[in-house]
Simulated scan of single mutants.
Amino acid sequence: MTADPPGFPAAQRSVSIKDVAKRAGVSVTTVSNVLNSRDRVSSDTRERVLAAIDQLGYVRNAAAWQLRAGRSRTIGLIVPDGANPFYSAIARGAEDAAVEYGGAVLVGNSNHSPEREAHYIALFEEQRVQGVLIAPVGDPDQRVEALRRRGLPAVVIGRTAQPESSSVSIDNVAGGYLATRHLLEVGRRRLAFIGGPASTPGIGDRLAGALRAVAEQPDATLEVLETTDLGVAAGRAAALALLDRTDRPLPDGIFFANDLLATGALQAFLLIRHVDVPGDVAMIGYDDIDFAQAAVVPLSSIRQPAALIGRTAVELLAREAEAPDENRRHILFQPELVARESSLGEAPSRTRPASDTTPTTQH
């Protein structure tokens, strides 16, 4: 039996966050908020918690989740598209947070395949990771619940999970509304939404927001073109298909479901067919990846706080590991409109509305 180091009795090592909460007369969540420097804790409550920590000698060893027997100091992150800069930014945010906790992140790319997603879940379990962050291909609830039953915390990224699981996501309906409303406010009325497949998480919500914005503008229309994937090549193909058809004119405003699609369309419009952007067609993407600002025509986009999403997911995982029954939360971030040159030019006179559209405040 190993002797206790001098000045570090066994009683001190056994103090848990629940002991601190009991001594301070607060919940475990409140103690966790104090430990993570959350502003929403009142000064009086913070002082009580800090006093209890001092009295009990509670020491947080980087993170409670590192102390779980038989686990490595890594967490698993599963994303549907490792080539998409948006998911790379999520991974960077998760890695930054994990390093602060003394750990590391292992990333698996499911490539939109449920079978490959299941493979990574099984692999991470075999590696005895501390927990799993998953941006799921399909319905995550059954898999996440199965992980939790086996004692492995999991946080869902990109959609709201069932109450039994923590999640961090973006309000995609609001994002679709922001993008489409922006095109309407700069005078575009013959709109198109390009993205897909429709089953891809978030795509249906973005389309729903776009439809809501168009419904508020009586003289506007929205054409929906579904793509097979969300890559650059699919965006280029969609743009060329619009240019090649003869039965209807080119839309004067296009909302792309992500920036990679918009990037491919920019290539088709500017380099292959020499279409004026934004003169002939205004464009807006989604995600605000680094390339959006650096494009030949800087791309308007809906910004998601990708790095913050990754960081928050790790923090939720750590909180749940500390107290699984008390620390489940659902964080919903709000998107932000970033307007650039691709949508800010004048619409051709033949498509400009007879009267100005009054801008509306977005929430």
Rank of each mutant, 00 (worst) to 15 (best):
S88H: 10
S88P: 08
A89F: 08
I90G: 05
I90C: 11
I90S: 10
A91R: 06
A91C: 09
R92F: 07
G93R: 00
A94Q: 06
A94M: 07
E95C: 04
E95I: 08
A98P: 03
V99C: 12
V99W: 14
V99P: 01
V99F: 14
E100P: 04
E100C: 09
Y101F: 15
Y101V: 11
G103F: 10
G103Y: 11
G103C: 07
L106D: 02
L106Y: 10
L106W: 10
L106S: 05
V107I: 15
V107S: 01
G108W: 08
G108A: 12
N109T: 13
N109Y: 11
N109V: 12
S110L: 10
S110I: 13
S110H: 09
N111S: 10
N111V: 09
H112T: 12
S113C: 06
S113Y: 06
P114F: 13
P114L: 13
P114S: 13
E115Y: 08
E115L: 13
E115C: 08
R116S: 12
R116L: 15
E117S: 00
E117Y: 02
E117K: 02
E117H: 01
A118Q: 08
A118P: 01
H119N: 11
H119A: 12
I121Q: 05
I121E: 04
I121N: 01
I121W: 00
A122R: 09
A122P: 05
A122I: 00
A122S: 12
L123E: 08
L123Y: 11
L123W: 07
L123C: 05
L123I: 04
F124T: 03
F124L: 10
F124S: 00
F124P: 05
F124C: 03
E125G: 11
E125W: 08
E125P: 00
E126T: 02
E126I: 02
E126K: 12
Q127D: 00
Q127N: 07
V129K: 04
V129L: 02
V129N: 00
V129T: 01
Q130V: 04
Q130H: 05
Q130G: 07
Q130C: 07
G131V: 05
G131S: 05
A135Y: 02
A135Q: 01
P136A: 13
V137K: 04
V137M: 09
V137F: 03
G138I: 02
D139H: 06
D139R: 12
D139C: 01
P140V: 09
P140R: 03
D141T: 14
D141I: 11
D141R: 07
Q142T: 13
Q142W: 03
Q142F: 08
Q142I: 09
R143D: 11
V144N: 02
L147P: 04
L147Y: 01
R148I: 14
R148S: 14
R148V: 15
R148L: 15
R148T: 14
R149F: 09
R150F: 05
G151T: 03
G151L: 03
G151R: 02
L152C: 10
P153A: 12
A154P: 00
V155N: 03
V155W: 06
